[in-house]
Design a protein around this nucleic acid. Structure first.
Lengths: 218, 218, 218, 218
DNA sequence: TATGAATGAGCATTCATTCAT
DNA sequence: AATGAATGAATGCTCATTCAT
């Protein structure tokens, strides 16, 4: 990002392994950009190298294969998405008085993540390669989808115990809450093809929280 | 393969329009098989021609391009899926006494379609090419997802008027009913990667109908 | 060689599979030329295609691999060399009165073959790849070296029975006769690097026949 | 590997010229190993560096080029082989009573060298590059083949003078003696591909000496 | 001196597509 | 209408070699 200054400022000083790490990061960033733009098969290593500002063999020096490059890129994106999602769910740990408002808020945050470029590209890329790299796809689903669902289930179980939700199987409640958010969101974003206006995101989140509370409220 | 008469009448000479049509169908069937197996970019025309039992140029005679071939294949699959989905929704036109049972039944039928090979392959293929053929992707979504939602909304509007559902925006109700079905189904089927046992499909449909009725029942 | 005329003369007539066969032959001829010029690893398929006057993929259409191309080329050369060698040995079947003269003549013919471009290139190419394609190398040796030795042994056995040679193990005699020819020839031709003048070839053959008869004559 | 003292004296500090020489030797040894294993083109500098336990640029520091590296390696091997061969021939300087026995012994020693790993690898490597490095190939032949022949010729001339061999052109005698040894040996070792059992080596040497004495004995 | 990192050039191979039959 | 054969373009990957440290 600010490569010019920092590199010019320390041309020889500490830049030993730093240049290497910088380049690796640049490659991974560029790879995500290009993969998201073209898809796995259509993306060519040369375009990634160009985007990263390095020579093609440098890509191969850092990441042995096109496939390896893809896997690292996807896993990194999945971890970021997962962290964002879990952070959103955390807000349910201390819900305060207005449960509907908190659910709406959490839903909106989850939507922002799921409708974001990273998450949509991640979904498209990994599912497109589900046949050729099934383990990678599985990993992505686990670290993003299932992790959120489980975290939500934990919160819902506590809320159930606290009498804020009716007695219910928390896994199912979580699964359905997520579905009420992502289902409409995917439809409206055309699976990430269109940008969903914030107002619509809010409407989806509100409707999801409303329906959820009608069905699961105490 | 075809009605014996027509082929017996013209064994080799002009081959008639029937042989041509047969071949075209064979090519399209083979194309779907191969595309589903390998994905768009990775599928090669030669493999499709082999699967169809014809020579490569014959494919080009019938469908000008690899892209054209893909589009026809995808549209055909989308139409089939859409018809299946709409047939399922039709059962709501005359719901009878037990609304929950009918909703569960409809849900189960929709799930069967959405978890089927055709629909999952269709989703994966079209979304993977969303970047390069956005219009195709849009068409698929419209003819499958949106069409079902609209048909459902029609039914829900009538049920609302009939007092079987509470007053509600029918589009939202339909959107959420679909979401309660497909969301969990996608998670469990790993986006079409795993086969979902019938018992699980039934559980998802039951839970969806239950939650839906709790939220929208009159 | 005379491609222009022959092809121009029959542009569409019988040239059905003929064009294909012509092209395959052209490719194999070109391959031998280029492999002989550059060696296996250094020869690139594009150069071969250029030399053959076809496009690179055409080479791959006819011979799947660079390795396959090499194998076919080498085997073809080996068969030609073998045939030439055996034809030379045949002259010993009816030796006539002057055995020394016939032996010298046979030796000279064998030398001409072994010092020829084809045989030297064959030896260099196959032995250079002995590590990566041991079976090919073995085949070449069998079809060229061993076959000649065995054919010679047959002749020597008969000559022994006829009292023209002393009693001796014919395999050893044949092995040594060949050695007396090829050993000096290889040294003088610098293993095919230099052209050996005919006079020198004659000297080698004469000396070989002389020494052989001194040792094995009756 | 080296005289322990010098290394103990300068363990890591200045490394002295001795460490440098050691490294150069290690590189040359590794180069021969790898070249023998893979051939010139297929051997990559990185594999050589790994085998030598040094970094790639170190190889370039010591020997400028891949070609230079190859040349040094080959020349070194040629010198070793030549020395071994000449040592074998030396035994003819004072033949003693049984000339056949000495000739057999010398032949066996020569065979051991020629069938050894070093000599076979040397022949294969240098002849494979005869086209791209003709001078190197020439040098190898001179230092190995021709040198032996000349040394042998010297001995045979003396033996001729001493009446132990008939009057004869000593160059031709030497050439043929070598041929009677290496020709069969190359056939049986499949040009260095197979290991020739000692018994066979002995048989070849005996037969060579026998034939030679029949032809050239006084 | 020795090395981690980077690069320009090159190659085998595949594929969609088009001719000529 | 159907096909065997041919091709131009593109891609993943490797390697010898050079900087900068």
């Amino acid at each position: 990002m600010s490569s010019g200054t920092s590199r010019a400022a320390e041309p020889a000083g500490g830049a030993g392994p730093r240049g290497r790490i910088d380049k690796r990061q640049a490659i991974l960033r560029a790879a995500f950009t290009v993969f998201a733009r073209r898809g796995y098969e259509q993306a060519c290593v040369r375009e990634i190298a160009d985007e990263a500002g390095v020579a093609k063999p440098t890509v191969y020096n850092h990441l042995n294969d096109k496939e390896t490059l893809f896997r690292h890129t996807v896993i990194a994106a999945a971890d970021t998405v997962a962290a964002d999602n879990l952070a959103a769910v955390e807000r349910l740990r201390d819900p305060g008085g207005d449960l509907g408002a908190v659910l709406t808020d959490v839903g909106l945050r989850l939507l922002r993540v799921c409708c974001g470029e990273r998450a949509t590209a991640l979904r498209r890329l990994s599912s497109a390669q589900a046949a050729s790299m099934p383990d990678l796809f599985e990993t992505v689903i686990e670290r993003t989808g299932l992790a959120v669902r489980d975290a939500l289930a934990d919160r819902f179980a506590r809320l159930s115990l606290a009498g804020r939700l009716r007695e219910c199987p928390p896994d199912q409640a979580a699964e359905q809450f997520v579905a009420l958010l992502t289902g409409p969101a995917e439809t409206r974003s055309r699976f990430g093809t269109r940008r969903v206006p914030v107002a619509e995101q809010r409407a989806v989140a509100t409707a999801a929280a409303d329906t959820f509370l009608r069905a699961y409220g105490s």
